[in-house]
Structures are given as C-alpha cells and as structure tokens.
Design a binder for these strands. Structure first.
Length: 174
DNA sequence: TTACTGATTGTTGAG
DNA sequence: CTCAACAATCAGTAA
C-alpha cells in the first residue's frame, strides 16, 4: 500500500487531518542510537550521562504479538530475512485479530507497563539528583549506599483466570 | 568494526 | 491535547 504514509511520526490520523508535521520523506532518521561521539571527552567522566539502567519502553500489544508472530512467520518462511516482511505481515494480521485475541496481548503489554512504571520510579530516583551534579561522587544521601540491587520481582506468571466468560468472539471493533 | 536501515503499530513522555 | 521518538528484529550496507 503506502509504505511511508505515516512511517513513524504521525501515528494518529484522527483528531485532525492537518496532522502531518513530517508526513513522509522517510523521516530523516528517527534518531535511534546516538553515536557515542566521545572524543574530546578525554576522560569518561562528567557529561555523557548514560542511563545506567534505562527502562526501555514496554512492548505494545502489537510487539508482543509480533514476537510470537515472528517465530511463526519465520518458521514457515525461514528464507525470509527481511524484517519488513514480518512487520508488514504482522501488521496485517494484527488488524485481523479480534479484540478478544488481542486481549491476551494487551494484558501482557499492560503488565509490562506496570513493571516499566516501577523501573521508572527507580530510574527517576536516580535522576532525581539530576539537578546539576554530574559528579557521581556526591552520591550518598538519597541513593542507597548498598551496591547490590536487582532483586525483586522474580515471580513467574501465574495465569490468573479472571474473566473468561464470553466464548464467542465477535469482531466487534466498533 | 560499529551503527544505522527498513517496516509494522502501540505506547510512553514531554510540550 | 499534540507531537515526536522509540520499542524488537536481523540481515545488509556504509563509513
């Protein structure tokens, strides 16, 4: 169809049709992966604040579905080595799923977000001292002095049967 | 060798 | 409310 219509910038087409700061043009590079240009830095201190544990955004239901879809897709198409192939196929199939089918994916995505929020909380705490103190040496009051962390949430997924009544899945998109 | 590219949609974060 | 960038993937290409 139209590759590049809303590549990545305009995700929303509603609200207004005049929504197109960057329609196409491949979006000159959505800026991903900053070139660690460290040359004049000389020392590896001060700026270049890299996030020690930057919580990456939780995968949306679509990505969750894609993860599984990719396996299936590649399984039947081991010759396909184009990421775009899966993306297109996945996108098409994704829209083919019904709300009930997307439900499990959304549920997972929702859980992912919950964890993300948690990570953000910790991440924010560290950033909390981002006032202007690039000296990591001045850390001691707000941060915990303990060096060990990462311990927590190790619970497996317990399938919680919450509501499972409707069996019939209608394509009730709208 | 290292980093970016494509292609999908959804979500999150900041303005 | 709106915009912009990024999340995974993976082989190929560029510098």
């Amino acid at each position: 169809m139209k590759p590049g219509s809303r590549s990545k910038g305009v995700t929303r087409k509603e609200t207004k049709e005049a929504l197109k700061p960057v329609d196409d043009k491949k979006l000159g590079k959505r800026k991903v992966a900053p070139p660690k240009a460290d040359k004049t830095k000389a020392k590896k201190e001060k700026k270049a604040k890299k996030d020690p544990n930057k919580p990456k955004r939780p995968p949306s239901a679509f990505f969750v579905f894609l993860e599984e879809f990719r396996k299936t897709f590649k399984k039947e198409n081991p010759n396909v080595k184009a990421v775009s192939a899966v993306g297109k196929a996945g996108g098409e199939k994704w829209k083919s799923l019904s709300a009930a089918e997307k439900a499990p994916y959304e549920a997972k995505a929702a859980k992912r977000k919950t964890e993300y929020e948690k990570l953000m909380n910790a991440y924010n705490k560290k950033q909390e001292s981002s006032a202007d103190e690039g000296d990591e040496a001045s850390e001691k009051s707000t941060s915990e002095v303990h060096d060990d962390e990462e311990e927590s949430v190790q619970e497996a997924d317990e399938e919680d049967d919450e509501d499972e009544d409707d069996d019939d899945d209608d394509d009730d998109d709208e």
